[in-house]
Design a protein around this nucleic acid. Structure first.
Lengths: 250, 250
DNA sequence: CGCTACTTTGACGTGGCTCAACCCCAGTGG
DNA sequence: CCACTGGGGTTGAGCCACGTCAAAGTAGCG
């Protein structure tokens, strides 16, 4: 399978109907700016499990996740792996003005990207302040998220790590729903136990054991391996070790 | 002691003689842009150990570290602490357009900041592309550093963590020297054992033991508690768990 | 000279890792 | 239709790296 293979391009879509229109890097753009974006953007699709980029290898585009989930991971020489990014819809992939990927990028579900080649995007950045401002804001948000993640990795117990990951996925998932008022917190895990372990700095066995423990303690209900119901979100939050706050829509 | 106390302001300095002129957020500015910066910048000084900001409390300025070292830390309800940022000269402190500090900020050595009030800085960002471009670049660099840090926290052993921290400090220290060619790698630790533990996600006892072990194994030589000599930098690098590379000036 | 903050070192306990067996289920091909 | 296979997941037994608790050493400083 060729490395840069991707599914056939989608038909050119209207930005104004895009599901991530108001949260992606284009969020602040006006109608005329969107027209310019439409003229240079293109879509790429990947199947679940497909690798999008290899650390150290060329990557000549940047873009936004439109649908699906991708991960950034780093592998040490002896095989130890750590996830360092979890890209959900509207998140930005790649670094402007950098020709090579810094991390392995893998689609963990079927994935659609809205892409820009490096050079045109660089020009967009230079003469579309609404884009560069938004990109700065998103990068600062990602830095805050990375710092939260550092607290998780450095100081939380295995149980707290699992609870934190579940709450993060639930929160992000809820923010995408049509009707955010609906109270049942139900979602599918987009990650295998192994990927969760790579996220959390644990082994997959420990992940499995702690999920079983949370199920035993009725903090979560599982149907199959991936489908999760959270009967009491505050209870889950109280297991994360974070300051009690509980608001799912913070 | 009032919270926002700081030492008397320095005399207004000429940006062109500033030690961080070419690496801080102002690095790309032209002469006329520097003039504008000079008209709104001001200096703040702090003593070693002094706290600069409290998580959740107002912080109405942003700025660059000119001299000294500051840390960003987060504390969990039960007192567990994790450092999430180590600010060395030329690093940027604070987030544009955010009125409150997200983390505790502490000067771990005597410190000088070059500051801007939030409002004027926001205006600078909007109409000085050289500043906003540079800030984006620095934020992306910080995100990369945060991700390296995540690998350290999630997957490295205690010994590897210590070796990694020493190499990071040595590297940053070397990049500030007049004569970077000089080969002896010698520096002072700007952190207590406890602060190192907070950085690395360890206890201070484990930090102390691992430093003793590296000394026993002749990877480092200590004079006093803080003054470190690295007789063979490649040897230290080989203890970090990172890809062998060894170049101190990468 | 006696605080106090920082550091080192020892003894012991334990949370999460390692190694290993086994389960479940969706393909796939005979 | 069933046997086989492989990827994911669960669970147990034992171990060890690092945390916890405790004591004592060291250096700066009023």
């Amino acid at each position: 399978m060729p490395r840069t293979m991707s599914a056939p391009r989608l038909t050119q879509q209207d930005c104004s109907n895009c599901p991530i229109r108001h949260s992606a890097v284009c969020a602040r753009c006006e109608a005329d700016e969107l027209e310019r974006l439409e003229s240079v953007k293109y879509y790429r699709s990947y199947k679940a499990g497909q690798q999008i980029a290899w650390a150290g290898e060329p990557l000549d585009f940047v873009g936004s996740v439109v649908e699906g989930v991708a991960t950034l991971t780093q592998t040490m020489e002896d095989g130890r792996r750590q996830m360092v990014g979890l890209l959900l819809p509207s998140d930005f992939l790649g670094r402007p003005n950098r020709a090579k990927a810094t991390y392995d990028v893998v689609a963990t579900t079927d994935l659609v990207l809205c892409c820009f080649r490096q050079k045109p995007f660089q020009e967009l950045l230079l003469d579309t302040p609404h884009i560069s401002q938004r990109l700065l804001e998103m990068t600062l948000d990602e830095l805050d998220a990375a710092r939260e993640w550092m607290i998780l990795l450095g100081r939380k117990t295995a149980r707290e790590k699992i609870a934190s990951l579940l709450s993060i996925i639930a929160r992000r998932d809820a923010s995408l729903r049509e009707n955010p008022a609906e109270q049942s917190v139900v979602f599918d895990l987009p990650l295998t136990r192994e990927a969760m372990a790579d996220y959390l700095g644990l082994t997959l066995e420990t992940v499995s054991r702690q999920i079983s423990a949370l199920r035993r303690d009725k903090v979560i209900v599982l149907e199959g391996k991936r489908h999760v119901t959270v009967p009491d979100f505050d209870l889950l939050m109280s297991e994360t070790g974070d300051d009690s706050d509980g608001g799912i829509f913070g």
